[in-house]
């Protein structure tokens, strides 16, 4: 029986304040041509109500539509703007208490896993500004001929796959889930939190709050 344990952090809501919409809007509004910027922002705007309606339940569709805004954008631009967004925007919007939790999890000897709806081009440049992360799991765009196709590669982060995924992950890395931690902020994280022995809801939305109350999970409210 393995004695290794992990701490799973859903980045959005626990470590980062802005979500996917903010990132996609930033990249879309910095596309190459002026008309293109408006068009791409329109696509992001289209996904906004979906995030609002389904955000507590399943973000997969919302994410897929939001990232559709990158269709035809060059890999170079996405990488460069991703770095810029991480450096100029996200870095200043890290949640201090979330960062403390990351540090504490590390100090307790857990393998720290950060799960994010954002794409690798944004999250990877952000890593140097975070405490040590052992593994980053995030969305990945599909590229063809140096341009984004607008599709996300499976598995898309943001849905209810988190529960099954975490079981597979534990098996792959020989982890014991009972002493493991998980921090989530949205209804979509319910299964992820349910899979580990020590779940914690952080600033939960309505769905997660109700679930946490029924399952008797601790609820953490960040204060300014």
């Amino acid at each position: 029986m393995s004695t290794k344990s992990a701490a799973f952090f859903r980045a959005e809501g626990t470590v980062l304040a802005p979500g996917v919409l903010s990132a996609t809007a930033y990249l879309a509004s910095n596309a190459k041509k002026f008309g293109e910027r408006a068009l791409r922002l329109g696509v992001v705007a289209l996904s906004a109500p979906l995030h609002g309606l389904l955000g507590q339940n399943d973000r997969t569709l919302g994410n897929r539509i939001a990232y559709l805004a990158f269709r035809g954008m060059s890999e170079d631009r996405i990488a460069e703007l991703g770095e810029e967004y991480a450096r100029d925007v996200l870095k200043d919007k890290l949640l201090d208490q979330g960062v403390e939790l990351l540090k504490r999890a590390r100090a307790e000897g857990h393998r720290v896993v950060l799960i994010s709806d954002n794409i690798a081009q944004i999250m990877e440049p952000l890593l140097p500004h975070l405490p040590h992360i052992d593994d980053l799991v995030c969305n990945r765009l599909e590229f063809a001929d140096g341009e984004a196709t607008g599709k996300l590669l499976d598995p898309v982060i943001g849905g209810h796959g988190g529960g099954r995924w975490v079981q597979d992950y534990a098996a792959r890395h020989d982890l014991d889930l009972r002493p493991s931690l998980a921090y989530g902020a949205h209804g979509t994280d319910l299964l992820l939190l349910a899979a580990v022995g020590r779940p914690c809801a952080v600033n939960p939305d309505f769905t997660l709050r109700r679930g946490a109350r029924e399952a008797d999970w601790p609820v953490l409210e960040y204060r300014e």
């Binding site: 060059s74 170079d76 631009r77 460069e80 810029e84």
Partner: peptide, 16 residues
């Protein structure tokens, strides 16, 4: 065209 895109991005990085 990739060189043109990279040039624009390099200028952007500097000018910002």
């Amino acid at each position: 065209d990739r060189a043109c895109e990279l040039t624009a991005l390099a200028h952007r990085k500097h000018l910002r």
